Computed example of a mutant assay.
Amino acid sequence: MTDIKTIAVAALEDLKGKDIVALDVSELSDVMDTLVICTGTSNRQVKSLADNVVEEGKKAGIRPIGVEGIEQGEWVLVDYGDVVVHVMQAETRSFYDLEKLWSMTPASRDGHR
Rank of each mutant, 00 (worst) to 15 (best):
I4Q: 05
I4F: 02
K5H: 08
T6A: 13
E13N: 11
D14S: 08
K16E: 08
K18F: 05
K18R: 14
A22H: 02
D24R: 06
V25S: 03
S26Y: 07
L28N: 13
S29Y: 01
D30R: 10
D33L: 04
D33H: 11
T34F: 03
V36G: 05
C38W: 00
T39M: 01
T41W: 04
T41D: 09
S42R: 09
S42C: 08
Q45M: 06
V46I: 08
V46Y: 01
K47A: 03
K47R: 15
S48M: 12
N52D: 11
N52E: 12
V54L: 02
G57D: 03
K58N: 13
K58L: 11
K58V: 13
K59D: 12
G61R: 07
G61K: 12
I62W: 02
I65G: 14
V67I: 11
E68G: 03
G69V: 01
I70F: 05
I70A: 07
Q72Y: 06
E74M: 02
W75C: 04
V76K: 00
V76D: 00
L77A: 06
L77D: 03
Y80V: 09
D82P: 12
V83E: 05
V85R: 00
H86Y: 07
H86K: 05
M88A: 06
M88H: 03
M88I: 05
Q89N: 05
R93V: 13
S94H: 14
Y96F: 11
D97G: 12
D97Q: 10
L98E: 09
K100H: 15
K100R: 15
W102R: 11
M104W: 09
P106M: 04
A107E: 13
R109Y: 14
G111K: 10
